[in-house]
Design a protein around this nucleic acid. Structure first.
Lengths: 183, 183
DNA sequence: GATGCCGTGTAGCGGTCGCTACAGAATCGC
DNA sequence: GCGATTCTGTAGCGACCGCTACACGGCATC
């Protein structure tokens, strides 16, 4: 492990925390460098360009969510849509995961317009889709695919509500999820 | 109506169309001016600053959605959550309204970090909430509030799916909405 | 001790950003 | 016709952007 690799590791960890805290606001190279406690010159020594810096840091940050999801619904579990939906809604509106979800909304919005976010967002969504689908207790494949997408839509939509109307509103919406959906 | 007012009107119309087409990508003053077929100098003559330009144009663009919603569910209508939800989902995933929804996602994401988007987004969401609530056939006020937010979350989430996974995926998710929710 | 890669700081390139100073053109009331 | 007000083009300010050229010290190898 060279010094360069160690620094990359440290930088990625610091930047993931920075992005979760500030979102995609302060993401100029100079601002990222400050957050990572290195010079901007060195950031571009550790990484080929800004896109790579961001991709690494975002990937790291998104990992937090994946870990928590796996804890909540371990592999092999298979649940009815209503149950899975309300569990996921409850998890993602928890205080400590809200920054991840808010960041996710920003990444998707950025994905509409520019690389590297397009690739990053598509990859992350596809990952969650693959994770969710086998945990969904539905016989029909086509129906399971559509329901997976619908659950993801609802959960992601809660993050939008969170940003616009505050965490309380998102929590209230998450709470009715269980009642709203067919058992 | 002074020349200035006429120009303002023309500029707002052109910019609303521009923003729906390109999203929030090309929104530097010089790029907005080009889309509005005036010089950047004049843009800041018609409006006090960039924030006002954007606010006016975004408001105009969002108006399209409001009009279509009113046509779909006129005042006085009162529907069960499942019906309202699937109608709104079907409407907002229609080809011609997707640009509005995609833009909405971008506005919310920007709202996390900067004015004027914060104010604009909060205002627009509150508007839709006020619109939706009385059209929801639920006796309990608290429950109606939460369900309103949940419906908005789902519909907005569909826009996120649209951006990440394409319109087809969003449409499929919208289609199962009717089946997924309690009658 | 010469050679050469690794790590780092300084300084700055060419560009875009939001915004403005200034002067000239057009249009108005009189 | 004339002064005043309204409109518009030019040109540029200072700040920030992503990125890079270049020089330099340290370390390893031979």
């Amino acid at each position: 492990m060279t010094i360069r690799d160690q620094q990359r590791e440290k930088v990625v960890a610091l930047l993931a925390a920075h992005l979760l805290e500030t979102g995609l606001t302060r993401i100029s190279l100079r601002q990222l460098a400050e957050a990572a406690q290195v010079s901007d010159r060195m950031l571009l020594y550790y990484f080929p360009d800004k896109a790579s810096v961001l991709a690494s840091a975002l990937e790291r940050a998104a990992g937090q969510l994946a870990t928590r999801l796996e804890e909540l619904v371990p592999e092999g579990t298979c649940l009815k849509p209503a149950v899975l939906m309300s569990r996921l809604a409850a998890l993602t509106t928890q205080e400590d995961l809200r920054p991840v979800m808010r960041m996710w909304v920003e990444v998707v919005a950025a994905a509409r317009r520019e690389e590297p976010f397009k690739t990053i967002a598509a990859g992350i969504l596809e990952g969650f889709r693959q994770w969710l689908m086998p945990r969904l207790d539905l016989p029909d494949d086509e129906r399971r695919d559509a329901t997976t997408l619908a659950i993801l839509a609802f959960v992601d939509g809660l993050a939008l509500i969170d940003i616009c109307a505050g965490g309380d509103a998102a929590t209230r919406a998450a709470d009715v999820a269980g009642l709203l959906f067919c058992k």
